[in-house]
Design a protein around this nucleic acid. Sequence first.
DNA 1: CCAATGGTGCCAAATAATGTCACCATTTAA
DNA 2: TTAAATGGTGACATTATTTGGCACCATTGG
Lengths: 239, 239
Amino acid sequence: MSVRLRQDAIVRSLRRNGTSTIADLAEEVGVSRRTVLRDISALRDEGFVIHSEPGPGGGLQLDPQSVQTTARLSVAEVFALLISVASMRAAGNLPFSGLADAGLAKIEKALPPDKVRDLRRFLDCLYIGKLSPQVDISNIQEMEPALLPTFEAAFLQRLQLSFQYCDAKGAVTSRVVEPQAMLILPPLWYLVAWDPARKDFRHFRMDRISKPEYLEGKTFRRRHVLFEDSVSPIRHLPR
Amino acid sequence: MSVRLRQDAIVRSLRRNGTSTIADLAEEVGVSRRTVLRDISALRDEGFVIHSEPGPGGGLQLDPQSVQTTARLSVAEVFALLISVASMRAAGNLPFSGLADAGLAKIEKALPPDKVRDLRRFLDCLYIGKLSPQVDISNIQEMEPALLPTFEAAFLQRLQLSFQYCDAKGAVTSRVVEPQAMLILPPLWYLVAWDPARKDFRHFRMDRISKPEYLEGKTFRRRHVLFEDSVSPIRHLPR
DNA sequence: CCAATGGTGCCAAATAATGTCACCATTTAA
DNA sequence: TTAAATGGTGACATTATTTGGCACCATTGG
C-alpha cells in the first residue's frame, strides 16, 4: 500500500471511529507506530486539523471543520471551474472566468500541490476527451463583454436584475427578474430567471437583453441547484 | 520534482509540441533517457495512447483520443457525481445515483488509483465543507421511485418524453417534450424541457407529472450545457 | 508514583527510483 | 547498402526515499 493510500485510510478511520490511538491506527493499516506519527504529521501539513490528547483515554480526533479549511470550495465553484476552464481554451469572453480563476487560486493556495495537479489533469481530460467533440463549445457565442460584469454581479450577489428584453416578435418589454441560472445552447446563451411580477420562471436569450442593471440592495433568496443531464451518448442505462 | 509531476510535465509537453523525441523530453524534464522511457511506459499503463515512430523524423506523439480512454467522463457525469454522491448521504431516491455510481466505477477502472482517491477525498471535502450547510440538500423531496427509471432513460438516451401534466390551476394536459435539464429548488424537482409543439422551453414540477413514458426511437439532438450560478455567499466579486 | 498516551530525534534497514551501459529493431536518407 | 536517428528492453549499480526500531521526553489520569 502506497503512502497516500495509507494516509487516506487513516483519515477515513478517524472520520469513522471518531477517536483512535496511534497504536490502533498502526495495527489497522499495518505499519509501525512511528510511521503513523509521520503520516499524521504529513496530514497536518496538508491542512487536516487532528486533535490529540496524551494520557489514558486520549487519542487522535479529526476535526470535522478541518476539511473545510483544506478545500473551501462551493459546488458552484467546482462547476464554474470545470466549464470555464474548458471553455476559456476555445473562446474569448465567457462568464465566470473570474470566478473560475479565483477558485483555482483558492485551490492552489489551500490544497497540497499534487491535488491541484490532479485537478488540472482532470480538467485536461474533460476538455480533450469529451467536452470539445460532444458539446462543440467552440461554437458558443461570446457574450457582449460590456454585459458580463453586470450579469456576474447579479448572479453572485443574488441581486435583482432589470433589463430591456426584445422578444421573438420584436416587442420590447422591461423586466425585473431574479437570475437563477444560465443555459448554454450553442451558440446562444440564455438566462433562466424567476419573474416576481409574473410569478413564473422565464427564459431570456442573452443577445436580446439590453441595458441590464442590477438593483443594489434588491437581494433575493437563492434556493436552487441546477442538475445537468447527460450530454454523452449512453451505452448502458444505470441499473 | 516528484515522479508524477514529471509525468505530467511530459504529457503537457507532448500536448503542446505535438511530437517530441525521448532525448528532447529527457533534457526538458532533466532526467535520463531511460527514465523518460519508464515514464512513457507508466503513462501508457495509465491509459494514455502515445504513438511512437523510430527513425529520423520519428518521435513520440500523444494521441488526442487517448485521454478519452483514460477518463471518458462527460461534464454531466462529473456534476452528477458531485451532486449525487453528496446527496445520497442525506436522502433516499434521487435521480442519477445510478449514473454517479457508473461514473465512479468508470473512473475507478480507468484512472490510476491515487486519482480516484483524490476525487473521493475531494467529494468528501465538498460535502463536509459546503454543500450540506449551504444547499440543505436533505430538504429535497424524494422523487417518486417508479418514475425514476423513465426519466433517467429519457434523459440519458435523449428520448422524447410524454406525460400528463397538471398545472397550477388544476388543468391537465398531455405533453410530449424533449427533456433538457432537471432543476432542484428544494424541496421540489423541476423538469426543464423543450416543447416542440409550442416551440418553447417549459418548466414542469416533477410532482405534477404523471404517466411518464419515453417514446422509443424519438431521439432529439441535445445541444446544451447547463451553467450553475453560485450558491455560496460571495466575498469578493471577480475582477 | 505508574501506566497510557502523543511526540521527536537518530540511525540502520528496506524499498523505490534513477542512471549507465550494452544492445536490438525500425526507419529514413545518403 | 550503409549509416544515422530514433524507439525500446534488460541488467545492474547508485542514489533517494520510506520505514522500523529504539531511546527518550511530555502530558494526563488514576
